[in-house]
Design a protein around this nucleic acid. Structure first.
Length: 464
RNA sequence: GUGACUGUAGCUCAGUUGGUUAGAGCAUCAGAUUGUGGUUCUGAGGGUCGUGGGUUCGAGCCCCAUCAGUCACCCCA
């Protein structure tokens, strides 16, 4: 038997990690719920056809395909062989692979909306937390299997949806105690306005992709790349003026400067109005919303407001979430005119941020609340009853299964980070808090009364 | 897909210009000690040195191939 290993780019998650991640997810899901979003799940696999062509040429290559079964069935062999030949030519052939693992949550959602658009109640607000798979080559912080956590609202063009989503970011990060996070906001319409302003309307996408790299490669390289792509000196200079506005401090100041620069285009005006609407609505909400004209976001289907959530500068992790508005979610599936806006939380990165800031609640470090030592048949019968009563009170507890040496049972409790142990050695009944080292002793007569479970319960709940 | 680097015990790593029987710490297990908290001591198990070739009297070490992993580019979360 060969050594067991994991497929490239996948991870096991240990109990400690899962507890912490569940804390993040339940906090975020709870906030989604408070804003009227409903949970949705879609299958791990979609028909390959559903996914192909939705993520660009590069994206198609990164889709994990699932091999069909029964290729070697005698009646299929000729078909299989032909399909394989097609595949070698770089074509898809449903006779070889007709299904694939989901690549993101947006396209399956679009597929769901397109399939059910007659039945859905609009505006339809859903959140979805599931793993996705990419056949990318993994590297630091990038995996072939990872979780996405999305919330979208479709069927409404109202900017109140954007306001809600901004508040969701704020409420979730506040609940997680990620102080110092920053929510950047921009509008694609302003970028579109910029492209009109420099007479390069048709090159919006190209320009956006370069601007999006600003954070990583810096102003100089961005200008270089723009020149290399054939933007004229004047155009690059205008883009430079635009990008410099982002350096100014106050949102109002930035808006007035961008009005000066791009106010001559109707598109930019609309974008500015969008930003002003959102800023006005969240005024006084203590939300750290920062207008950032350099924010572009790589994905090209955004058409309006775009968001990016940044981790506190002290942790140097960067983006922990993002999203934006799109005009037409389901057009590709034959159902036109369903606009939407959505956001995503980067769960893995949020985990890293919280780990680095050391802000996970300490209660997450405790696995079981009480361990009952195993000290023989007679005690076992007794503690089994107590354990049962505590569980009914929703207090987690376990009885050590074997009558091992006390030291071994003790070590188990310490290593598993159990908060309390209960032992009854030689008629000396004791509940001990391993976190604070406090002990509570009981006499045999005390222990065998009906109120005893209640006593334990109150000790435990006062130490939470 | 392109490039660079790394593969020695369950884990982290030593291993000299190529030279007897490949080591340490941690972890595991057993025993002893300790009479109340992760102690200490002793011992044991555990390795085809990623795999396959080659050079050599002799390879963990040198050469070639191959596989795996890590990192960077592209792209993205």
């Amino acid at each position: 038997m060969a050594k067991p290993t994991l497929p490239q780019g996948t991870r096991d998650f240990s109990p400690d990690t899962v507890r912490k991640r569940n804390f993040i997810l339940s906090t975020v899901k709870n906030v989604f719920g408070l804003y009227g979003f409903q949970p949705l799940e879609t299958p791990a696999m979609e028909n390959l056809e559903t996914l192909m062509g939705k993520y660009g040429e590069e994206g198609d290559k990164l889709i994990f395909r699932v091999l069909n079964n029964g290729l070697n069935d005698p009646k299929n062999i000729e078909k299989s062989r032909a399909a394989f030949e097609n595949t070698l030519q770089g074509k898809n052939d449903a006779n070889l692979t007709s299904r694939a693992l989901r690549y993101d949550l947006t396209i399956p959602f679009a597929r769901y909306v397109a399939m059910n658009h007659g039945q859905l109640v609009y505006p339809f607000k859903r959140y979805q937390v599931q793993p996705v798979w990419r056949a990318d080559r993994p590297q630091k912080g990038r995996y072939r299997e990872f979780y996405q956590c999305d919330a979208d609202v479709v069927g409404s063009t109202s900017l109140m949806n954007e306001v809600d989503l901004a508040m969701i970011y704020h409420d979730a990060f506040t609940a997680l105690k990620i102080d110092g996070y920053e929510l950047r906001v921009n509008s694609r319409k302003i970028l579109a306005g910029l492209s009109e302003h420099i007479n390069a309307k048709e090159r919006l996408e190209e320009m956006t992709i370069v601007i999006d790299k600003l954070d990583k490669i810096g102003h100089d390289k961005v200008f270089e790349e723009l020149s290399r792509k054939g933007f004229t000196e004047w155009q690059v200079k205008q883009i430079g003026t635009y990008l410099n506005i982002g350096v100014k401090n106050q949102n109002e100041e930035k808006l007035s400067l961008v009005k000066e620069l791009l106010g001559d285009t109707g598109t930019a005006k609309k974008g500015i109005a969008e930003l002003e609407f959102i800023l006005d609505k969240v005024k006084g909400k203590n939300i750290n919303l920062v207008v950032d004209f350099t924010l572009a976001r790589g994905l090209n289907y955004y058409t309006g407001i775009i968001f990016e959530a940044k981790a506190p500068a002290s942790v140097q992790i960067g983006s922990i979430g993002g999203g934006g508005r799109y005009d037409d979610l389901t057009g590709l599936f034959g159902v036109p005119n369903i606009p939407g806006v959505g956001i995503s939380f980067g769960v893995d990165r949020i985990y890293d941020v919280m780990e680095e800031m050391a802000i996970f609640p300490t209660s997450l470090d405790i696995s079981t609340t009480v361990l009952f030592f195993n000290e023989g048949e007679e005690q076992l019968k007794f503690v089994f009853e107590i354990a049962g009563s505590l569980r009914k009170k929703n207090i987690s507890c376990e009885i050590y299964p074997d009558q091992d040496k006390e030291e071994k049972q003790f070590k188990y409790a310490v290593r598993k980070r159990i908060q309390f142990i209960f032992s009854s050695d030689l008629g000396n009944y004791k509940l001990k808090n391993l976190v604070t080292s406090e002990s509570f002793n009981f006499t045999a007569s005390e222990v065998h009364t009906e109120t005893f479970t209640g006593k334990i319960e109150s000790i435990i709940s006062s130490h939470k």
